[in-house]
Design a protein around this nucleic acid. Structure first.
Lengths: 228, 228
DNA sequence: GCCTCCTTGATTGAATGCAAAATAGCCCAT
DNA sequence: ATGGGCTATTTTGCATTCAATCAAGGAGGC
């Protein structure tokens, strides 16, 4: 029975189905393709994803724990709405975490990691120059995540990612003003400098200010949307 | 059909079963009654809890997301072991969160909340005087949670609680030295004072120092245990 | 005597089935 | 015509069943 099945089918379903589903749904929610408030009907989702209800239900409950969906007992689940107060609170916590990340990154980041942040920074500048907002957001996210990762604290990274997934959705509905965008890019310049100089205190302050700017933009976008 | 059911039966089983199970298992794990490394056999647990496998499995996956259990694909789940590096990282993050909590609590805590913290503090002193370690831990936990709650940031509170649940388990296996215990009580005196004086900067520093002390004690207990 | 391979038992992963709750639609009374 | 109550359908919650994977033990060969 010598077989080469594992070659022809490298990892087919080696990963638990519910994890796969969690990631798929999370992406859909974070990218805004599942609008906040949307009902998650089990039957239609099982049909669309081609799976059974069991792993789907597990996935939904997992996302509920992450705060991306809300469970209405006996009434199913909906994509978690974006509430201004919760966005504010989330960004506040992220600020504290980024501060810690900045300190740790200054102390522990490898040169390779610093180089990667720098590379992402230039990529981001390119996106800004082109006016590619989506690409800009992508690089921006990557930079922040990279800094957090460079802190070398896995618990910190996980916690940050989770909060980030909730707050990130705001940006997909925000039309960044040119001024705010330019300001953000300038802030990133300074952040990068403080990081490569390993100036922990300064980096911490810069990250905090930067997040405050984001908060303002996010809340602006939210109130706009709610007005509409 | 005017009925008063909602009065006589406030919430009879209104709560989903899987939530109930999550809380039960979480308590068992946090209290150390389920020792780290223990296998969670689905069949025996369904028997002990008197439920079916479906809600149990959902609960286990939820706890895995919280980091209290680890999932071994196709081989079930075990109670998450207490690793020194992860405990360190967790306490580091908790430090950043407590710092934020301290700042916010100084700014927003109501007088009633302050009074409650003070009351818990005296209760804790009583436990210390009696040498009641378990009671001391309980009050200690309550104080820290209360401060975090007084910050008025629900996201912060949730995040903190989750990390706390992982790290808390260390204490149930730590024989606090008399010196460390006394020092912790003194630190709490200062923390309380800074809080009622609403001295945010000082409170932040004190909480950080306090947690460093805890970290030392925790790591000591861990290495001891691993040696055994 | 030891190693390898195969078989077997046990345990998890996923799917289906059944019961209860909730929503929606309809009929009737006012 | 409108509001209230009732029934029917949909949908969720939990239990059970079926299938796949893994660990262990034993038989056979080297």
């Amino acid at each position: 029975m010598g077989s080469i099945e594992e070659l022809s089918a490298p990892k087919i379903s080696r990963r638990p189905l519910h994890e796969e589903v969690v990631d798929q749904l999370r992406d859909l929610i974070v990218q805004g393709r599942l609008v906040p408030g949307t009902r998650l009907n089990e039957r239609v989702l099982t049909g669309q994803l081609g799976i059974s209800r069991t792993p789907l239900r597990e996935a939904i409950k997992l996302l509920a724990a992450e705060g991306l969906v809300e469970l209405l007992p006996n009434r199913g689940a909906i994509v978690a709405p974006l509430e201004a107060t919760r966005v504010t609170q989330t960004l506040q916590v992220m600020g504290a975490l980024e501060g810690l990340a900045g300190e740790l990154a200054c102390a522990h980041a490898s040169d390779a990691q610093l180089a990667e942040v720098r590379a992402l920074h230039y990529e981001m500048l390119a996106m800004h120059a082109r006016g590619d907002l989506a690409g800009y957001f992508r690089c921006n996210q990557a930079i922040h995540l990279k800094i957090v990762e460079a802190a070398g604290n896995a618990v910190l990274a996980n916690t940050y990612r989770q909060l980030n997934d909730y707050a990130r959705r705001v940006r997909y509905m925000a039309n960044l003003s040119k001024e705010r965008w330019d300001a953000a890019v300038r802030e990133h310049e300074e952040i990068l400098r403080a990081l490569v100089e390993r100036d922990a205190a300064r980096l911490k302050g810069l990250l905090r200010e930067h997040l405050d700017g984001k908060l303002g933009a996010a809340l602006g976008a939210l109130s706009e949307r709610q007005a509409a």
